[in-house]
């Protein structure tokens, strides 16, 4: 059995064949018992797969979906909407703030050249005498 006829046969199940292809397939099916048997097998295979379908979830699926939907509707009240919007805005702001702080710490470290807290925060290191002198 030629692969060409097999491909044509397979295609006939899923694609629209041109008139010449339809006639060719009809002719070779009439001539070849092997191809007719292959057609039966393919038909059986496809019917078997189609019949294996499971068309429902556990009982009360609709109710479970509606419970979740109802829950979402409740959280969509103006106050909750404002809170969730605030929550969504907070995350990028918090990340940007954290990155800025880390950046400033690194800058302070590179300028002061040591790991003291004052250096990291960019605070000049005053001695007690300096402060007393400045106050006078």
């Amino acid at each position: 059995m030629k692969n060409k006829w097999l491909d044509l046969l397979r295609r006939s199940f899923d694609d629209h064949l041109s008139r010449p292809d339809q006639e060719t397939l009809k002719r070779v099916l009439a001539e070849s018992a092997e191809l007719r048997s292959e057609k039966r097998r393919l038909t059986d295979l496809r019917n078997l797969i189609a019949s294996s379908s499971v068309e429902s979830f556990r009982p009360f699926f609709t109710e479970r979906v509606m419970d979740v939907v109802a829950g979402r509707r409740q959280t969509r009240t103006p106050v909750n909407g404002w809170r969730s919007a605030l929550g969504e805005v907070f995350r990028p702001v918090a990340i940007a703030a954290a990155l800025t702080i880390v950046g400033l710490l690194i800058l302070g470290l590179s300028i002061s050249g040591n790991l003291s807290l004052e250096g990291l925060l960019g605070i000049p290191e005053y001695s007690l005498e300096n402060i007393v002198y400045a106050m006078e």
Binding site: S53, V54, E55, F57, F61
Partner: peptide
Amino acid sequence: LVRLLEPRVAATVIG
């Protein structure tokens, strides 16, 4: 809609 579409969605997802 959920009731009507459950068979189709179940067949797809369970498949």
